[in-house]
Nucleic acid binder design. Sequence first.
DNA 1: TTATTTATTGTATTTATTACACGAATCCAT
DNA 2: ATGGATTCGTGTAATAAATACAATAAATAA
Lengths: 229, 229
Amino acid sequence: MDIHKQFFKSAFSVDSVIFGYDQGDLKVLLIYRGAKPYIGTWALPGDLVKLDEDLDDSARRILFDLTGLSNVFMDQIHTFGKVDRHPLGRVITVAYFSLVKIIDYKLNPSSWAKEAKWHSIINTPNLPFDHTEILNYAKNKLKERVRHQPIGFELLPKEFTLSDIQNLYESVLEINLDKRNFRKKLLAMSLLIDTGYFQISVAHRPARLYRFDKKKYKSLIQQGFSFEL
Amino acid sequence: MDIHKQFFKSAFSVDSVIFGYDQGDLKVLLIYRGAKPYIGTWALPGDLVKLDEDLDDSARRILFDLTGLSNVFMDQIHTFGKVDRHPLGRVITVAYFSLVKIIDYKLNPSSWAKEAKWHSIINTPNLPFDHTEILNYAKNKLKERVRHQPIGFELLPKEFTLSDIQNLYESVLEINLDKRNFRKKLLAMSLLIDTGYFQISVAHRPARLYRFDKKKYKSLIQQGFSFEL
DNA sequence: TTATTTATTGTATTTATTACACGAATCCAT
DNA sequence: ATGGATTCGTGTAATAAATACAATAAATAA
């Protein structure tokens, strides 16, 4: 087929599943659509890819426009391409997921979004297009990834307690973990830096605060280390 | 942006990394391009996605046209979307990989391929577009997947010896494995059926032939079993 | 002062991983 | 028919990792 016949008829977009974590709950950032189609419904943020824009840059742009954040963990997860997935034409969409620290920024709805809001993952509204399928796919990817890469820390503030990270793992994986064994395994990797500080103003024994040692992780990876929790 | 402005300017394609295994060597199926651009070079088989064709169907079509095979293991791996990856326009490509039993079929070059040929993975020619990047990505995906899903069997004939499957793992993972430990672990999963038959006409003690028990695997998966080698 | 809440820590048991070598079965060459 | 070449098939002991499990410590609130 002549490639020029194919042009003129199709387009591709990026949709972002932006995860956050707050108060023991995994959340996803949805926008309230201010543009057709499906105007007036909650949906995943996304946009058509610009012609002079790399695919990854497009995903970064969407995240930045919405949250003002850059330098955030982001990864492509899957491309969805059913013929009838978009009511206005043949549009395939490349799904990305991002992990952000909710605390770090303020939401900043854009031209195509009237409003943006965090929704608890266990109670999301019905979504248009194939966005429900995309969201489920992203949740499963996150479950897999969180066990093989230290990306859970991307969802927590820079300083966190061991209970914080355990609760996060329990939320994402939807299982319970043994406290002593979880800590033993995590600390055995020597990837946490003890800040020497403790929680303040909590109505119980304050917990130690740790930071994730990204530099050490990178150097261990070079040496063939593989993260697993 | 109005979606109709975006149409008229871009297209998307599928490229397939088709792996086979023969005589202890992992192979990849390349076509000799008979169409522009890059006419007269070895490349990954691929084609533009038809407007009335689901993305996955497009990947199946490419494989079928080239090999006559359907019902083959196939999975999407990544979408490549640099602005300048295609010299004739803005084309993003969705990469798939397939695992086929080389023995099962005869190659069947199509309109866009003058010739198709298996190339040993350790000695592939330079490839056009970003196909080298795609191939490397696929090799790494295969390494990961083969350890967590029983897809290695897709590359072997229906009946195989324990040495066959071990050699395959050693080729794919590029490591050596201990014979006794590998067998112990593999057999402990109880996913192999002993056919009761043996190799014939080999100049050494003949090995037992096994089959992979796909039904049992599926039922174990339901029960939360997870494959790992 | 006491009650409440969450943090911190170790050990014994079970399970999985690793390292390692020799007799058996077949074909081939003489 | 014998001996040589080749690959097959098998078990155990040592080490490492995963699991199950509960009491004391430190803070605030009442």
